[in-house]
């Protein structure tokens, strides 16, 4: 039971990094991408290759994951950010479809549909992370780093410029903001975070394949951000916890026959999500209005 909970906590922490990554794009930049699982995947494959062939050190693997995802994100950002918002969504959907095919076909790098197996247990600065508790602590450490960096950047001029563009890009440009550069930086930052999430995921699972990086995963990450509350530091964390822990918690409802538990779980889960969006359309965590 303890092992199950530690594993669940570790996965929740990793997905909190992913939700924070998409929050940079959606919440702060107003850039609606449904391709976040692509950058999650690129980070995971890059980190897995580093772990398999260079070093299992989580810092090195995360740097490789973040770098690979950030580099690929430029390929999406430069052409796609020139188009209007709704077209960017379509462009990101196209990238998502393309990436799944590439992940499946690029067997020498991704292992194809069978994935990459035998990823060695991670270490951190020479310390092995074979103990699940140590891995959880490492993932929490990365999450804290990502949150602190996000807070610093979003409270500074970069965050203000990004939010200005989100609220009205024409007005932001009229104040001297280079919208293309700022949006590209935001996409790179958000995707680098997703790459870190991928690196942590490959280290935790020690096996990755394309099924973890599909459109379903991108939609799940988006749901975490929107249900939790966009443009806030805490919102995506709350959304992640809710989305990952609610199904697990529903498994413990007494009196439901084991054969029916899946159906009941789906119904309650769907109902809770629908009610949340009706009564808290801005997400669970929203910015407070302060008028002096």
């Amino acid at each position: 039971m303890i092992a199950y909970l530690v594993n669940l906590a570790t996965l929740t922490t990793i997905f909190a990094v992913l939700a924070t990554s998409l929050n940079i794009l959606i919440g702060y930049g107003g850039i609606f991408s449904i391709a976040q699982a692509v950058f999650f995947g690129v980070g995971a494959y890059a980190a897995a290759q580093v772990a398999l062939h260079v070093t299992p050190d989580l810092l090195v693997a995360s740097a490789a994951g973040a770098g690979a995802a950030a580099l690929l994100s430029i390929c999406l950002a430069l052409p796609a950010l020139r188009v209007r918002d709704e077209y960017f969504v379509i462009a990101s959907l196209g990238l998502q479809m393309l990436a799944v095919t590439v992940f499946t076909e690029a067997t020498p790098i991704t292992g194809g549909f069978g994935g990459l197996v035998g990823i060695p247990p991670a270490s951190l600065l020479g310390l092995p992370l074979t103990d699940p508790n140590a891995m959880l602590a490492a993932c929490l450490g990365f999450l804290v780093l990502v949150l602190v960096l996000t807070r610093v950047l979003m409270r500074g001029s970069f965050g203000r410029s990004l939010m200005a563009i989100r609220d009205n890009d024409t007005a932001a440009e009229a104040l001297g903001k280079n919208v293309m550069v700022l949006k590209t930086l935001a996409v790179m930052l958000g995707c680098a975070y997703a790459g870190i999430g991928g690196a942590l995921y490959s280290a935790q699972m020690q096996f990755i394949n394309v099924e973890s990086f599909t459109l379903d995963q991108s939609v799940l990450i988006m749901a975490m951000v929107i249900i939790g509350g966009t443009g806030t530091l805490i919102g995506p964390l709350v959304g992640t916890v809710l989305i990952l822990l609610l199904p697990a918690a529903l498994s413990f409802i007494p009196g439901i026959p084991p054969t029916e538990i899946g159906v009941v779980q789906q119904m309650i889960y769907g109902l809770v999500m629908t009610l949340l969006m009706i009564f808290r359309p801005g997400g669970l965590v929203t910015l407070r209005t302060r008028r002096q």
Partner: peptide
């Protein structure tokens, strides 16, 4: 074309 979800202070700071 104000930055509607930003504070008055941040609207002006951004400028």
């Amino acid at each position: 074309r104000l930055f509607g979800h930003m504070s008055v202070l941040d609207n002006v700071r951004a400028a």
